Amino acid sequence: MKVIAVIPARYNSTRFPGKLMEVLGNKTVISTTYQNVVETGLFDEVFVATDSEIIFDEISKNGGKAVMTGQHETGSDRIAEAVKDIDCDIVINVQGDEPFLKKEPLRQLIEVFSEDHAQQISLASLKIKLNDLAEIQNPNNVKVITDKSGFALYFSRSVIPFHRDLADDVQYYKHVGVYAFRKEALLRFASMEMSPLEISERIECIRYLENGMKIKLVETDFVGVGIDTPEDLERAKRLI
């Protein structure tokens, strides 16, 4: 089973344009992420997929592998274009603005496919418990609910499940945007049109669910620093 990692990297982020080229320690955010993924030793190859010549040149000049793509609505669509001619079985999508992702969650995602002998799982991803009410209600945190086997039922920026009876003990989970795809499932995803639900929530996983594809969620306790705002960057600088 050949496993590769692809880091989708868009320069003009809506909330924080140019964030991937901000300096973190002595390297840019995107170079830090790329190096950390390579150093896990889990992947046969690691690529950055971008529509930005600035990011392409940043990775290339530092000895990394980058692929130029067109413009896309989602990271998965970008990765699908990047990998269509690359020989691989499993593709791990690591967000370019998550520089501190650890090895163990990535290993767990790969293991999902190693154990899926019937090849029923199209996509695996991560979830983490949410306990703070403000974090649960924050629409920037995508919530996920699963069945008893850990397969996704739905993703939403709203609070799900709705806590009607406060006497009941309900656990909330945040979806961590790290994905592991079967290559054929990823290419199939890219051939499908966005649905009104996906467009409304701005959550690409919904496209998989609406087309009957299985998503396995793996629980993690890893809390990284996603760099979505200048304040997040300052937090990451303090961490590094």
Rank of each mutant, 00 (worst) to 15 (best):
A5Y: 05
I7V: 11
R10A: 06
N12M: 10
R15E: 13
G18A: 09
L20G: 09
V23D: 02
K27V: 00
S31E: 12
S31C: 03
Y34A: 02
Q35Y: 09
Q35V: 01
V37S: 07
T40Y: 12
V46W: 05
V46S: 04
V48W: 04
V48L: 07
A49D: 08
I55Y: 01
I55R: 03
F56K: 10
N62R: 15
G64K: 11
G64R: 08
M68Q: 10
T69M: 11
G70C: 06
Q71N: 13
H72W: 11
E73L: 13
T74F: 15
G75K: 12
R78E: 11
I79V: 15
I79K: 07
A80M: 04
V83L: 12
K84M: 12
I90K: 07
I90M: 08
V91Q: 01
N93E: 12
N93C: 10
G96C: 08
G96V: 03
E98F: 09
L101Q: 08
K103Y: 09
I110N: 04
E111S: 14
E111W: 05
E115A: 13
S122C: 10
S122L: 01
S122Y: 01
A124Y: 02
A124W: 03
L126R: 05
L133W: 13
A134G: 01
E135G: 00
I136F: 10
Q137H: 11
Q137R: 14
N140P: 00
N141D: 10
K143T: 03
K143I: 03
T146W: 02
D147V: 05
K148M: 13
S149H: 14
A152V: 14
Y154R: 13
Y154E: 14
R157E: 00
R157H: 13
S158E: 15
S158G: 11
I160E: 11
F162S: 11
H163E: 12
R164G: 12
D165C: 06
D168E: 15
D169R: 08
D169F: 09
H175S: 13
Y179D: 04
F181A: 00
R182N: 06
K183G: 06
A185L: 00
F189Y: 15
M192S: 01
L197F: 07
I199N: 11
S200Y: 14
R202F: 14
R202M: 12
I203N: 02
C205Q: 12
L209W: 08
E210I: 08
M213S: 01
K214D: 10
I215Q: 10
K216Q: 11
L217A: 08
V223A: 13
G226W: 02
G226R: 09
P230D: 06
P230K: 07
E231Q: 14
E231N: 11
D232M: 06
A236G: 04
A236L: 04
